[in-house]
Structure formats: C-alpha cells, structure tokens
Design a protein around this nucleic acid. Structure first.
Lengths: 356, 356
DNA sequence: GTGAAAGCGCTAACAA
DNA sequence: TTGTTAGCGCTTTCAC
C-alpha cells in the first residue's frame, strides 16, 4: 500500500518557478498570464499527473450552487411525487458540497403554467436546471435564454433532441414497449386479442406512448407464430362519462387475452376495471410502482409492471448537474435506465432495497 | 433560497466561552475536558443544530483510510470478476476522500487459502475490511481479531449472523428461489417435471443453494393447481466424467419442462447441454449476467436470468465502509438488493445503463 | 485541561 | 501580469 503523496499546486509552482496563484490561473484559464509563465506551468503539467484535490477546492472556493428543478407539481400525480423524492435524496447527498435545490413545480394540466414557471426559473438565475420538458412548445424558447446565461440544464423523463442539454436521463421507450410485449407473450395464450391502452389524461406524452406502442407491435410482428390481434384504444380522462363505457366495452370481447397499459396511472385504472368485471384470466402489463399498482400486483390482477424509475431518474439528474458544477466533470450525455420488470415475487425485494 | 450561514465550531466556541480546540475535544470525546467546559459546550450543542462540515473535516484531518478487500480470486470465476469491478468503481469514487482499497484475493477452490489471506489482512492492519465470507469455518476465528483491533468489517454475498459485521449486502435467497419458480410458472406448461440443478463445483455455497431450492419448492407448494414434479439434482464438477452423463440423463426425460439452475456458471453449462441436445422447448431459468449466459439468453436457450448483481454488492460494500470511516456515519445493517429479472428484451437496457 | 496557532490544498482578493 | 496573503472549517500539536 504505497502512500505516494499527492501532487499539489504548491509542487507545481515550485517545479515551474512561479507562484501558486499563477498556477491556479493557468489551471482555470482565469486572469491574464504571461506567455512565459504559461509555458513553464504547462510543461510541468504535462510531465506530471496532477489531480486537483476537489475537497480542498470546494472548501477553498466556499461557493454554493443553486439548482432549479422544473418539474410537474408532485401533488398532482404520484408518478411525479416519486421524482420529487429522488430530487430530495440527491439534495441531501450533495449538501456537503454546498449544493442546494429549489423546486419550481408547474401545473401538469396547464401548459401555460410551464411557461410562467420557466420564466421564474430564468429570473432566479440558478447555476443549473433540472427539467422534465413535457410540453415541447412551451419550453422550447427558454433553452436559448439558459444558454445565453451559460446555465447548464439536464432533461429527464422526456428528451428534446434539438436542445443542447447537458444530458438526458430516461428510458428507451421503444424497447420498453418490446419488453411489454415479451411479458405479454409469456402468458399462456398464443392467439386472441391484445389491447394497447393509452389512458392519457395528460395528453402531453402522446409521443411517449406511441413509441411504446411501436415497440409492442414490432415485437409481435417479428413472431409469425403468434396470431394475436392487436387493438389500440385511446382513452381520455377517466372522469369523462364515455371513459367507463369504452373500457368496459373492450372487456366484453371474449377473445381478449391481455392488456398493455402505457401509463402508470392508467395501469391501476385498468386494473380496477378488470377487478370489477371479474376478469381474472386477462394478462395485465403496465407501468410503475405506484402504491395502487402494487396492490393490484400483489392480488394478481396486474401481472407485470415495468419500472420507469422516476425517483432514480430525477436523482441522477441532480447528480449529473452537481457533478458538473462542483467537479467540473463532463457527464454522460444520455443515460437510459434499465427496464426493470416487477413481479409479485420480486416486488418485496424492490421495496426493501434502499435504491427505490 | 435562503442562505442561512452554517454554524461552525468557532460559533460554538464563542457561544460557550471556550476555545475551538475544546469544542473539538467535546465533540469527539478525545482528550480530557473539565466538567465545567463540558457542560457549557453541551448546553450550546443542545440548543443549536450543529452539522459538522465533513469536507473541512477530511481536509483538516488529512488522513488516508485503507480498506482491505478479502474476496475470491477474480481470475478464477467471472462472477467474482464482477465483484472486483464494483470494488474498483467504489475506490475511484472515494479517492477524493483519501480512501484506498487493497485487494486480498484468495483461492476459490482452496479453503486454507482464505485462512492465509485473512492472516495477511490482519497483519496489514487496515482501517476497514470487505469480506465475502464463503468459507465459514476458516474465516470465523478472525472476527474476534478484527474486533479486538476495532476494525469494522462488512460482508457481501454471504452473511454470517454470528459475527458483528457492520453490515451485509446480498440478496434474499429464499425469495430468489421463489422468483425463479414464478418465472418458471409463467411458461406454457402446468404439469410435467421441473428440475432444480445445483451445479456446484465450489461446494462452499451449498447453504445458498438450498435456500434457493426451498423458495422454489415452496412457491409451487402454494399452488395446488400446478402439478409439476420437482426433482433436485446435485451435480459436481463439470470436468468429472459422470457430470455429462447425469445431465444428459435428465434431458432424456420426456416429461421435463423446465430447469432452474441455482448458480451462475451452472446456468451456461446447463444451457450448453440444452443446445447440444436440441431441447428448444425446455424453460431455463438461471443466474447472473455472465457473458456466456447473455449469449444463451439472446439465442433463446435461457429464458430468464435473475441478477445477483455481484458488482453492485461489492460496490456498496466499499461504500458502506467508506461512509463509516470518512463520515462516521452509521450505515444500514442489512441491504438486500432487488431480485432483477433479465430477459432477452430488457437485457440491452441493463447493458447500456451505467449501473451494472 | 486549555487556548493559540499551524496546517490540510485550494481560491480569491489585493498589492505591487 | 504576478506573488503574497488571508481565508474556507476542522484537526492536531504544543506550550502553558
């Protein structure tokens, strides 16, 4: 266990015949440095393996970083509540490094709200921004503003390719649909009807849902030996009067063998209808570990949940921003999280482990 | 975004009318402090919410921590190679805090090797120890020694209840067997023979394997509607001449519908036999994302892998030790990781994500 | 027992 | 353009 002493700025200063202050200036490109000094320092830097002591750096600079979190109001949806939990967790872990996170919640059901709140974020001049950019048109104009101010921003949940985000954390939606199909395919049936349900009170993520549908359909297209008929149903707000009728309608189809629900809230809504109609033998595959979904998973109404891991997504989002700010570290451009399959039997292990 | 300045040791010193040094002595119980001073400081501490600045602490103390990692030789087994990868990852992350990890590999196939290496660990007087305590009798006597030296140790992979380890990271093996059974149950069959295969060249973990078997059997016992006959087969070293015969033997059973293999290496060995014998329709459920297993998962020979996540187990083990040493943080006593289900379709997402 | 003071490695303000 | 200096908050040594 050799304990080679680390190289410090002082060492570099001594070796290159300048002062620590000058070395600091060279290292950070701040301030005017003479060509001569620059050369001398760079020469030394090339020869040795200098790793700045980040602990000392944060202590010395004594700076606090403020991150703004622009996400849908957690109170409006359990899915987004989990995101918020991830943000809180990350904030706790970074508190040592003087990183603070301020939430800027917007109304999930009112696009203009995103605009207003984004405006507020911009005015707050944070050091970094975490965004769930679910309303494309509303958020788009702000990216230029953020970039003009040199404020790094990270996306999670939804990606916007055209923007210059520091990184994106989410899942491969197409592949997610394929996993849904695979799980459905595991059931005992090889023919009949399978329904894809978009229960979509928040219309924002229709692109999301279509990607999942595409993956789902393509999986079956590749398998000629299974002769499912795949139907898509777009259901709107569960409060609407037509909603119940439509849903009950398809449940009457005697050929119906399985349902793939593309949203997390939709999953337990569909489950409740299955239960009400005593449809025990229909495979139900849906999304996310919402409390309601877990109940139905335990009771066997839901067969599989695909975990989109909203908590971890947001957690990683803050992490990436913080690492970039504190450690000036270049971070992953795209982080696609694993498509976790939750079943009745492995559910307890997911709940027990501290990760989720 | 209120920026309440943090309370420092100086503040406490001023408020209680003593010096910073004395406050430090009180906080850490080091050194002799007069009753009077003790009272004054404690009074202030009770009234305010003091959170030590851990960054400053590590910088100030300028101490380096050495962690010894006592694990099977990674070169002998791909499973343990993954553990080592986790250790390396953790070491990198903690390098800032002057935490170093030194590997102490022992021979997986020679119990006495563990003894020797443990001896070497003890002599190295590390600040913390990560152990995969797979040979019970050999490692047991060392715990007293470690404790006498006040060296915290953390288990992963295998737990030893009687020892006073700081924590244990692993999985619930019984539940893991249940998940295996559940996945098997998802197949298209409801009757026939299902084989549990213990392919166990390293006899050490027989307890492990029996726990998995127990879970597997109990799952089916709870379901009277499925009439599988469950057979257990203990196979030894794949190099042995009898091995191939035994394995081929059960594959001849026309009633055989599925195989549950309880070890990671055993999984691809069983898969290779299925492939050789062109047994396409037999469900194969096994363990871990070894490269060989992934091939068979992709080609459809293996249906499911349960991920024991050796990399993450070891990673967390170092994390827990480091947090305990650096931050004096009390850590989770038992961390049972999620029982991740890997399928052909979600595999890419597991490989892409940086976690695994 | 206790306070003063130096130091951890880096940053940043200030003279020069 | 540069070196010096005074911190950041805590630990640790060393007189008293």
């Amino acid at each position: 266990m050799l304990n080679r002493k680390n190289i410090t700025i002082k060492d570099i200063a001594r070796l290159s015949g300048v002062s620590a202050g000058t070395v600091d200036r060279v290292l950070h490109g701040r301030g005017r440095v003479s060509d001569d000094a620059l050369k001398k320092v760079n020469k030394v830097l090339e020869e040795i393996d200098y790793k700045p002591n980040l602990i000392a750096r944060t202590l010395g600079s004594n700076k606090t970083y403020r991150i703004a979190a622009l996400i849908p109001d957690p109170q409006q949806d359990p899915y987004w509540a989990q995101s918020q939990a991830g943000i809180k967790k990350a904030e706790n872990e970074w508190a040592h490094y003087n990183v603070q996170v301020e939430p800027f919640p917007f109304n999930l059901y009112d696009k203009s709200s995103l605009k207003e709140v984004a405006e507020a974020v911009f005015n707050a001049k944070p050091d970094g921004i975490l965004i769930a950019p679910i309303f494309y048109n509303e958020i788009l104009p702000f990216f230029e503003l953020f970039e003009a101010d040199n404020i790094p921003y990270v996306f999670f949940n939804t990606n916007i390719q055209e923007a210059n985000s520091l990184s994106f954390i989410g899942q491969n939606l197409y592949q997610s649909g394929r996993v849904g199909a695979e799980l459905m395919h595991l059931g005992r049936y090889n023919s009949g009807t399978v329904a894809i349900l978009h229960i979509n009170e928040d219309i924002h993520n229709s692109v999301h849902l279509l990607e999942k549908e595409r993956g789902f359909r393509e999986y079956f297209k590749e398998r000629s030996n299974s002769v499912f008929e795949i139907k898509t149903l777009n259901l709107g707000n569960p409060e609407d009067s037509s909603f119940g009728n439509q849903l009950s309608g398809i449940l009457q189809d005697p050929a119906l063998k399985g349902i793939f629900v593309t949203t997390s809230k939709g999953t337990y809504i569909a489950a409740s209808y299955l239960e009400k109609n005593k449809k025990q033998d229909i495979m139900l595959v849906g999304y996310d570990m919402l409390e309601e979904n877990l109940q139905y998973l335990r009771s066997g109404i839901i067969n599989f949940l695909i975990n989109q891991n909203p908590k971890r997504q947001a957690f990683l989002g803050i992490n990436y921003l913080a690492e970039n700010l504190v450690f000036k570290r270049r971070v992953l451009a795209t982080d696609l999280l694993p498509l976790e399959v939750i079943t009745r039997e492995n559910l307890p292990s997911y709940l027990d482990s501290g990760i989720h």
